Computed example of a mutant assay.
Amino acid sequence: MTNSDPICPLCGRPIPNGGGSLHHLIPKLKGGKGGPTVLLHQICHKEVHATLTEAELARSFNTVEALRAHPRLEKFLTWVRKRPPGFRSKVPGKRRGR
């Protein structure tokens, strides 16, 4: 980890080299190909997609601010901020029931 590591816009922790994942704010399947993207921790990115459908992301959660305000993601972000920047879950995440 260096001082020049990018910062995850969701959790605010540095993203170590190779630990980032590009998130399309509007999903590619919903017209976001070539649209705005943000670099997130892989664990943060997985949680976004485990929590929200592509339609929900396109319709209501297409900004970092909206993602941060989602109740479940808000709880996850409070938890993950206490973890080291390179933290990865050992247990594979799964989609939550809707």
Rank of each mutant, 00 (worst) to 15 (best):
Val64Glu: 10
Pro85Gly: 07
Pro27Gly: 09
Ala55Asp: 14
Cys11Phe: 07
Thr51Asn: 14
His23Gln: 10
Leu40Tyr: 11
Glu56Met: 14
Glu47Met: 15
Leu67Lys: 01
Thr53Lys: 15
Cys44Gly: 00
Gly32Glu: 10
Val91Arg: 13
Gly32Asn: 09
Leu22Cys: 04
Ser4Glu: 14
Arg59Glu: 11
Gly19Pro: 02
Leu10Phe: 04
Leu39Gln: 11
Glu54Met: 13
Val38Arg: 12
Pro92Met: 02
Leu22Glu: 07
Val80Tyr: 01
Lys28Ile: 13
Pro14Ile: 00
Pro71Thr: 04
Arg72Leu: 09
His23Lys: 01
Ser21Asn: 14
Arg68Gly: 02
Gly20Asp: 06
Lys82Phe: 06
Ser21Gln: 15
Lys33Ile: 09
Val48Ser: 05
Arg88Glu: 12
Val38Met: 08
Ala55Lys: 11
Arg95Tyr: 07
Cys44Thr: 02
Ser21Gly: 01
Val38Ile: 14
Ile43Thr: 15
Glu54Ile: 04
Pro27Arg: 08
Lys82Ser: 09
Leu73Glu: 05
His41Lys: 11
Gly35His: 09
Gly12Gln: 05
Ser89Thr: 12
His45Pro: 08
Pro85Met: 09
Phe87Val: 01
Arg13Ala: 08
Gly32Arg: 10
Leu40Asn: 04
Pro16Trp: 03
Cys11Asp: 00
Gly97Leu: 11
Leu52Cys: 10
Gly32Phe: 09
Pro36Cys: 02
Arg96His: 09
Leu25His: 08
Thr51Ala: 12
Phe87Gly: 01
Thr2Glu: 12
Asn62Ala: 11
Ser89Met: 05
His70Asp: 07
Leu77Pro: 05
Leu40Cys: 12
Arg81His: 07
Thr37Glu: 15
Asn62Arg: 15
Pro9His: 06
Lys75Thr: 03
Cys8Glu: 06
Pro92Cys: 01
Val38His: 05
Arg72Asn: 03
Glu47Gly: 00
Val48Lys: 08
Gly32Asp: 13
Thr53Phe: 14
His49Gln: 04
Lys33Met: 12
Val48Tyr: 13
Val80Pro: 00
Cys8Val: 02
Phe87Lys: 04
Ile43Arg: 10
Thr78Trp: 03
Leu29Cys: 15
Arg59Tyr: 10
Leu52Ile: 08
Thr2Met: 08
Arg98Met: 06
Thr2Leu: 11
Lys33His: 15
Pro85Ser: 06
Val38Asp: 04
Pro27Val: 08
Val38Thr: 09
Arg96Asn: 02
Lys82Met: 12
Lys90Glu: 11
Asn17Leu: 05
Cys8Tyr: 04
Pro16Asp: 01
Arg96Gln: 04
Val64Trp: 05
Arg68Trp: 01
Arg68His: 05
Thr78Arg: 15
Pro27Ser: 13
Ala66Ser: 14
Gly32Trp: 08
Leu29Asn: 15
Ser21His: 15
Pro9Asn: 07
Pro84Arg: 13
Gly97Arg: 14
Glu54Ser: 15
Val38Asn: 11
Lys33Asp: 14
Arg59Leu: 12
Pro84Lys: 14
Pro9Arg: 03
Pro84Gly: 10
Ile7Ser: 02
Lys33Val: 10
Cys11Val: 01
Ile26Glu: 03
Glu56Gly: 10
Leu77Phe: 05
Val80Met: 02
Ser89His: 04
His24Asn: 13
Lys82Trp: 02
Ala58Gln: 09
Val48Asn: 10
Leu25Ile: 03
Ser60Lys: 15
Arg83His: 08
Thr78His: 07
Leu39Gly: 07
